[in-house]
């Protein structure tokens, strides 16, 4: 019997207690440990990462102060992609897989930045923190803007107006059909509260860091960068990607915060107000808003009466027809003209 074929027993020192069984990071999935870890790496880079690049680049179009035309064009392009639902499902599966395993792996280690405050070690801990922050942020982002959940009554803004417009609006007011709303509604979401803007800032920095740093570590894990020099060079590429994506985000962020609601067309103004409810605060030029709405005969429908504050009836004047109402009900309301503004 040679040493090669001996599976040598694990030795213990005389008097030493039995070695305790160690919890494996792989746990019940240990048979497929290696494949799962590589898929975890891949699922972060390819579907999620590539989508985020496209997403941030599209959003960057908000920087052109062209009343959101470029941005709208990009959004419509994305919505024109065939089988978008499959892409969405693929993305969700990738995020769920990546996040599920990621959380599992995160708690297998124990950060020690205090004792060993090297840059690489700080990034090891940051990678885990930003992963958790990114997960919370992405959920909040999708839940509010895509699924239109009103989480804790914080913020109720639709993401894309086609398919998410207030039920019945187009039937009541054919003039408001197909009004481009992607830019104003995105801008509205960010201008809504400084906390929302802050959430986006922190959330996107976390996502972008997590992705670019993940790209750096993945190159080592897959055995692409096998020398210290190569790791360093690839690190510069990852920093470049981080900066580029942050520039895209910066453009979207600044563009959204500086978006000029006053410059919109009367139809856009009416449709925005219809969709978001009490949205008058977004308009600096109230006179122009009134004139614009009057020019398409919608002032009475969308603006609360002057004495709304005194009667405390402002809430009731919200022009929103609750999304839970069926289109049929809205149609009935349309028959009664002005009564639609419940």
């Amino acid at each position: 019997m040679t040493a090669a074929t001996t599976s040598a027993p694990v030795t213990t020192r005389p008097g030493a207690p039995k070695p305790k069984t160690r919890t494996s990071v792989a746990g019940p999935l240990s048979q497929h440990h290696f494949v799962l870890r590589r898929l975890h790496s891949l699922s972060g880079i390819v579907p999620v990462g590539l989508f985020v690049i496209g997403h941030l680049f599209t959003n960057a179009q908000m920087i052109w102060q062209d009343n959101g035309e470029t941005f709208q064009h990009e959004v419509e392009f994305i919505h024109s992609i065939p089988a978008l639902l499959f892409i969405e499902i693929a993305l969700w599966s990738a995020i769920a897989f990546h996040a599920g395993l990621g959380l599992y792996y995160t708690f297998s280690g124990k950060g020690n930045v205090a004792a060993y405050s090297y840059g690489d070690n700080i990034r090891y801990s940051l990678q885990r923190w930003t992963g958790v922050i990114a997960l919370v942020f992405i959920f909040f982002h999708i839940a509010t803007l895509r699924w239109r959940w009103d989480i804790l009554g914080l913020w109720d803004t639709p993401f894309y107006y086609k398919g998410y417009s207030v039920p019945g609006m187009e039937e009541q007011f054919p003039a408001l059909a197909n009004v481009p709303l992607s830019a104003p509604l995105t801008a509205y979401a960010l201008q809504y509260s400084v906390w929302v803007a802050l959430l986006y800032l922190v959330g996107v920095v976390a996502v972008v860091f997590h992705w670019s740093n993940g790209l750096w570590t993945a190159a080592i894990s897959w055995g692409l960068t096998i020398s210290t020099g190569a790791m360093k060079k690839w690190g510069y590429v990852c920093i470049g990607l981080f900066v580029a994506l942050m520039v895209f985000f910066g453009a979207a962020f600044v563009g959204s915060l500086r978006y000029d609601f006053d410059a919109m067309t009367p139809q856009q103004k009416a449709a925005t107000l219809f969709t978001v409810g009490d949205g008058q605060w977004a308009f600096d030029d109230k006179e122009r808003l009134e004139t614009d709405l009057a020019s398409i005969g919608m002032e009475a429908v969308l603006l609360p009466p002057e004495d709304a504050d005194e009667t405390g009836a402002a809430g009731d004047e919200r022009p929103i027809v609750e999304p839970s109402e069926t289109p049929g009900v809205a149609d009935d309301a349309a028959d009664h003209g002005g009564d639609a503004a419940h």
């Binding site: 240990s30 440990h33 290696f34 870890r37 297998s108 690489d120 070690n121 990034r123 750096w216 570590t217």
Partner: peptide
Amino acid sequence: AGPGGVADCGNAQN
């Protein structure tokens, strides 16, 4: 390749 193997390295490089 098994549990606890190379893939568990988190590249902290300490």
